[in-house]
């Protein structure tokens, strides 16, 4: 059996490595889920970390008890004569390990329910930003086989496989699908939501700062599924306004032909149109 000091040392090292691993995971490029770039992803991230620590405590407690028991009570040549006692159970102990998990579950359930309700509403927005682009912006998202179509109803813009959003403004993504289901996921900005035919699901996302984030579909929908990625470009509110104007002035109108091509199963590059209904 190891000396007590070494076991405690090992425990500290384990926790240290975990913390290190977590703090090392702050690059949005490699660890999008663990380096949230917006308020939605951040609330989810805090819950992930909170639940992780809670579960880690449980794992450690059980591991210590488990390994202690299997080491201490293992059969050895020198205890060959030992006849284990027949123990029915122990009401006090059993109550204890029923109550403790209940407390853990309660401790986890309270913030869970709070955040679940919170995420239904848009994140708060600063007054200065709201002046430029309004309090929020709505973008309709349609998942096709195998591309993402974004329609800006207020701006009358359609983009394919990329979406520009103003930073600091909650974006109301209205999700639907033209056929098979998919899920819309921008891990750095927040969790995913399904796109389903004839249904409109809402997902609030917001980026703190200008930047470019990778999004993808996460529900398998056929051959081209792995290639169904898109880019979310968060622009400063003024840049966003400029982008909208320039698209409205310079991008081509959506034609019947282009629309038909988008609806065909297949892969396609990034496209921009200055209208959302085909002409």
């Amino acid at each position: 059996m190891k000396p007590k000091g070494r076991r405690v040392g090992g425990l500290i090292a384990l926790i240290g490595f975990t913390v290190l691993a977590l703090t090392g995971c702050d690059s949005p490029k490699y660890w999008p889920v663990l380096s949230p770039q917006g308020p939605v992803a951040r609330s989810e991230y805090y819950l992930i970390i909170y639940s992780f620590i809670l579960m880690l405590l449980v794992v450690l407690a059980v591991f210590i008890l488990f390994f202690w028991v299997i080491i201490k009570y293992r059969a050895r040549p020198d205890n060959a004569d030992y006849v284990p006692p027949e123990i029915e159970g122990n009401a006090k102990l059993e109550t204890l390990w029923t109550v403790i998990p209940i407390l853990v579950v309660i401790a986890l359930a309270i913030p869970t329910v709070a955040v679940t309700y919170k995420l239904v509403y848009p994140p708060k927005v600063e007054a200065a930003t709201a002046k430029v682009v309004g309090k929020s912006i709505t973008i309709d998202v349609i998942s096709e086989q195998w591309k993402w179509v974004f329609k800006y109803p207020a701006q009358n813009i359609e983009t394919v496989n990329y979406v520009d959003i103003p930073a600091g403004v909650p974006v109301n993504f209205q999700l639907t699908s033209s056929g098979p289901m998919n899920t819309f996921w921008v891990p750095a900005l927040g969790g995913m939501e399904f796109t389903m035919p004839h249904m409109d699901l809402r997902l609030w996302l917001e980026a703190d700062h200008p930047g470019s984030y990778l999004g993808r579909g996460a529900q398998y929908n056929g051959r081209g599924f792995a290639h169904m990625t898109f880019t979310v470009n968060a622009l400063s509110p003024t840049d966003f306004e400029n982008w909208v104007k320039s698209v409205q002035q310079t991008a081509p109108k959506l034609t019947q032909q282009a629309d038909a091509q988008i609806n065909q199963p297949g892969l396609i590059g990034k496209l921009t149109f200055s209208s959302t209904t085909p002409e």
Binding site: I48, S51, F52, V105, T112, G191, A218
Partner: peptide
């Protein structure tokens, strides 16, 4: 099982789902 409990937190699940 315990990662299952982590998955049972709906807002966290939005990030884990299908990953």
């Amino acid at each position: 099982g315990l990662t299952g409990v982590m998955l049972a937190v709906p807002p966290a699940d939005y990030q884990y789902h299908n990953s």
